[in-house]
């Protein structure tokens, strides 16, 4: 296990002739998180590492059903295995939800450009995760928590619709206890026994103190509707647009910049994204 990862994220460059050929992986562990989301730990049958950077994604194949793009949610420095948190949202993901430990899937990737962790080093870090948006951010969050002393203040805001939709419950409890990070959680609708914040994620912003906005880097991931409101709050704290990173959801069919489904204006999200600098995409009308 090493603590170093690729300095700057690079576009996927396939070096062989098999960019459409998935590599077989085995599901090691399965944990049902919520009604809609299930967590998987997988490893390649040949024991090789996935070799991803935080924010990248893979195409998961269930042969005979199809492929779906899924963001990688595990710490990139952990070698030999990787984790995915998958929402049952379509034909392929529905089939994946029926799989058990020991079953195999096909994996292509990792694809896309993730977060450049070097941009976060030495800065205050603010994570804003909405719903399943925690999954792609978790790769980066875990890396930052592991290398905690390299950053100044670390804040994590997490919101879901209801308490029963909270993902990574054990880790969320650890975040709450962890004195090295400022963790705030909210739900849109409370439930019996819920004592924490109720309201959309922007209601957490008054709790966030940003001392040095110019030296604060923000990473946002959530449903499209969330971005506009969260970015308004972030900008209102005088954090420059260039310091905001967002991860955009698209239906990448090929993952290699050809099929066109993920295109926003002239940009292929599967290659140049899914992580974008906000200043880079704010004028793209179709972005969010």
């Amino acid at each position: 296990m090493s603590n170093t990862i690729t300095a700057a994220p690079v576009r996927h460059k396939n070096t062989d002739t098999n960019m459409f050929l998935p590599k077989m992986a085995k599901i090691n562990k399965v944990e049902v998180f919520t009604e809609r989301e299930t967590w998987y730990e997988m490893e390649y049958l040949d024991k090789s590492s996935l070799g991803h950077t935080p924010g990248q994604f893979v195409e998961v194949s269930v042969f005979g059903v199809g492929e779906a793009p899924i963001s990688i949610s595990s710490d990139p420095t952990v070698e030999g295995k990787f984790e995915l948190c998958i929402r049952n949202a379509g034909v392929v993901t529905n089939k994946i939800h029926q799989l058990k430990a020991g079953d195999t899937v096909g994996i292509r990737g990792p694809f896309g450009t993730g977060f450049d962790v070097n941009k976060f080093k030495g800065k205050n870090v603010l994570f804003v995760a909405g719903g399943l948006g925690l999954a792609p951010l978790r790769s980066l969050i875990n890396y930052v928590v592991k290398t905690r002393k390299e950053y100044k203040d670390v804040t994590l805001l997490y919101g879901t619709r209801e308490p029963k939709e909270i993902l990574y419950k054990k880790e969320v409890e650890e975040f709450e206890k962890n004195k090295d990070i400022n963790f705030h959680i909210t739900v849109d609708r409370g439930a019996e026994g819920w004592t924490k914040n109720v309201g959309v994620i922007t209601t957490l912003f008054p709790k966030v103190k940003i001392d040095d906005p110019k030296n604060t880097i923000v990473a946002v991931c959530g449903p499209p509707i969330m971005y506009k409101f969260v970015i308004m709050e972030v900008l209102a704290k005088n954090i420059p647009a260039e310091n905001i990173y967002i991860s955009l959801e698209r239906r990448m069919k090929c993952g290699v910049g050809k099929c066109g489904h993920c295109q926003i204006n002239s940009v292929y999200v599967c290659c140049e994204g899914p992580v974008f600098n906000y200043a880079q995409v704010r004028d793209f009308k179709e972005a969010i």
């Binding site: 576009r11 996927h12 460059k13 396939n14 002739t17 098999n18 960019m19 459409f20 290699v256 910049g257 050809k258 290659c271």
Partner: peptide
Amino acid sequence: FEDTNKDP
């Protein structure tokens, strides 16, 4: 088809 990822 040659750009970035070559389509075999």
